[in-house]
Design a protein around this nucleic acid. Structure first.
Lengths: 228, 228
DNA sequence: GTCTATAACGAGATAGAC
DNA sequence: GTCTATCTCGTTATAGAC
């Protein structure tokens, strides 16, 4: 009986995977706003009502795609951090940033899904907010390691921002000084600013050698958070 | 005769304006991907084919909305720069950045249209690329002014990026040193990274005092490009 | 010449009866 | 799960009002 249940569960997962795969193709072709359960069903030769056994609504399918995307990106970031385990901290930082960019270039539509404009009519449930933190957590890990040695200097922090910085540090990385926590959140947003501008076409006619440009920009971000 | 033509032209512009206004409402409600000429016409009590006198296609209407958005944002940035005309250069820089953020918070859907995910099936014509440069131009102006006095120090630049930086400077701001040009482009992307993260919900459960956080982040961006 | 309205096309989505 | 009748869409051709 446990094998039967296992087989059932496996089959269920396989179908759910196929549904998500087809939905991702739709995402690329039509965008998240036009993601339609019917079209996904059609592509799979199923009937739309059958999909509801796997995803109770279009929004639930969207949520699953979003979480998958965050997880895939997070895994890429973690892998890059691990691969550069022995390297100096700034090099680990840039390795993670480059992995983020590489993932985005390889999965542009999933990137747009999670870091682009919100999908009209869709409200992201708190579970996605949690999944979104994974890349940030990898960066925190590098800073934490640097903080244990002499590899981290605290960036400046105006008095005005000190309470907020303390709150951030307490919430996200209690081991890090508030100055570092605040600088990290800013660098995190700025990293994705660079990736988004490249991916969404803002660098057209502006930046040509994007590899070199990105590498240098994230190296400076590393300096900005205090990595030496 | 010239008054008759003037009246005609005025009427024409008025209708075109009403169409764009209705389209912007649609943008807010349904998103750019679902912008529909028929719905716009319906809202105006017109018939869909009548819109074609004003916009040859749905994509042309989208293009007009995009250019309007860039222009509106650009005007807000210019106004902020002018209002801070006498102030020290870092203060002018932050004033422009704050104006960008304020405009984005006031016009979230138009912001998403120009800095969010690309609209599926829509290819931005080169005219939009030109309109997109206006905010960057305002920032260049501040740096140019600082460069004439002692207010600008050149950021570091690795040899790897020097040719690209020289090309950027030649294209965008021939008066500025290549180091500054490259740093400016990075800061420009990072500025919009901060705004996008706030607007697109990434700061949820992360940043609370967003005014103070943003102010400090863009102040550090100013330092990054060499403003003192 | 300038505009609006009617009607239609082909493609696609949708709701509901069966 | 299937079929069908009824929607929507962008777009064009055409005819007529001002």
């Amino acid at each position: 009986m446990s094998t039967a249940q296992g087989a059932r569960a496996r089959a269920r997962q396989e179908v759910a995977g196929a549904i998500k795969e087809a939905a991702r193709r739709q995402l690329a072709a039509e965008g998240a706003a036009k993601l339609s359960l019917r079209a996904v069903a059609r592509e799979l030769g199923m009937v739309s009502s059958a999909l509801y056994r796997y995803f109770p609504s279009r929004d639930d399918l969207l949520t699953a795609l979003i979480i998958d995307a965050y997880d895939s990106l997070g895994a890429a970031a973690e892998q890059a951090a691990d691969a550069a385990a022995g390297a100096p901290h700034p090099a680990r930082w840039t390795a993670v940033c480059e992995a983020v960019r590489a993932w985005a270039l390889a999965h542009p539509h999933e990137y747009a899904l999670i870091y682009g404009s919100p999908v009209p009519g869709y409200a992201a449930p708190p579970t996605t907010v949690r999944a979104a933190g994974r890349v940030g957590f990898v960066l925190i890990g590098i800073l934490r390691e640097a903080h244990q040695g002499p590899g981290l200097t605290a960036p400046p922090l105006p008095a005005e921002l000190r309470p907020e910085a303390r709150r951030m540090a307490a919430d996200l990385a209690p081991e890090l000084p508030p100055e570092t926590a605040a600088a990290l959140v800013a660098a995190w947003a700025q990293l994705f600013g660079l990736v988004s501008f490249e991916l969404f076409g803002q660098f057209k006619e502006v930046v040509e050698d994007r590899d070199a440009f990105f590498r240098h920009a994230v190296t400076r971000l590393a300096h900005g958070v205090g990595l030496r």
